[in-house]
Simulated scan of single mutants.
Amino acid sequence: MAKKGAVYVLDEPTTGLHLADVDTLLGLLDRLVDAGNTVIVIEHHQAVMAHADWVIDLGPGAGHDGGRVVFEGPPAELIEADTLTGRHLRDYVGADR
């Protein structure tokens, strides 16, 4: 998995992980990116979103109410966005608006 220039797509990699294991996963993802790889993660876990370089938020809701890009940018800007994900991430990181 550590080939330089590879693209990795992970779908909900935190499912079933203990919180300590999420930190381990984030460290692994950082090492892959630092080695020149691209990592795309489809995830609902706020720790992963807060740790990301770039977030694409689809919505505005789930199922037939979703599917449109409602935000894209760094997590620091997402917590300021008026989206469901932005509100949850803001609560997670304890940021005041």
Rank of each mutant, 00 (worst) to 15 (best):
residue 38 T to S: 13
residue 82 D to V: 02
residue 61 G to P: 13
residue 91 D to A: 11
residue 43 E to T: 12
residue 64 H to N: 04
residue 94 G to S: 07
residue 79 I to V: 15
residue 76 A to C: 06
residue 22 V to C: 13
residue 26 L to A: 08
residue 43 E to G: 13
residue 77 E to P: 00
residue 61 G to F: 12
residue 97 R to S: 09
residue 14 T to Q: 07
residue 69 V to R: 11
residue 7 V to A: 05
residue 74 P to F: 00
residue 28 L to R: 06
residue 50 A to R: 08
residue 36 G to K: 11
residue 97 R to Y: 07
residue 86 G to S: 07
residue 5 G to D: 07
residue 31 R to G: 12
residue 89 L to I: 08
residue 85 T to M: 10
residue 93 V to T: 10
residue 89 L to P: 06
residue 66 G to A: 14
residue 23 D to S: 12
residue 1 M to N: 15
residue 49 M to T: 11
residue 66 G to I: 09
residue 93 V to Q: 06
residue 11 D to R: 02
residue 96 D to C: 03
residue 21 D to Q: 07
residue 3 K to T: 08
residue 41 V to D: 04
residue 31 R to Q: 15
residue 1 M to L: 15
residue 6 A to G: 13
residue 71 F to T: 05
residue 77 E to G: 03
residue 4 K to W: 06
residue 91 D to P: 00
residue 13 P to Y: 05
residue 80 E to C: 07
residue 68 R to H: 09
residue 43 E to V: 10
residue 50 A to W: 04
residue 84 L to K: 06
residue 43 E to K: 12
residue 13 P to H: 09
residue 66 G to E: 08
residue 16 G to L: 11
residue 3 K to E: 06
residue 91 D to G: 07
residue 64 H to C: 01
residue 31 R to T: 15
residue 12 E to S: 09
residue 50 A to T: 06
residue 20 A to C: 03
residue 6 A to S: 15
residue 90 R to A: 03
residue 21 D to W: 02
residue 5 G to H: 04
residue 37 N to D: 10
residue 59 G to K: 10
residue 4 K to T: 14
residue 88 H to T: 14
residue 12 E to D: 13
residue 38 T to Y: 05
residue 33 V to P: 01
residue 20 A to K: 09
residue 70 V to G: 01
residue 54 W to Y: 14
residue 65 D to P: 00
residue 16 G to Y: 10
residue 50 A to D: 11
residue 59 G to W: 09
residue 9 V to E: 00
residue 95 A to E: 05
residue 47 A to P: 07
residue 11 D to G: 03
residue 17 L to D: 09
residue 97 R to K: 12
residue 62 A to F: 13
residue 95 A to S: 07
residue 79 I to P: 01
residue 34 D to L: 14
residue 93 V to R: 08
residue 47 A to T: 10
residue 96 D to Y: 01
residue 83 T to C: 01
residue 97 R to C: 00
residue 13 P to I: 09
residue 87 R to C: 02
residue 39 V to M: 09
residue 65 D to S: 04
residue 93 V to F: 08
residue 80 E to T: 13
residue 39 V to H: 07
residue 22 V to H: 05
residue 62 A to K: 13
residue 75 P to D: 04
residue 70 V to Q: 01
residue 52 A to L: 04
residue 41 V to M: 02
residue 34 D to H: 12
residue 81 A to R: 01
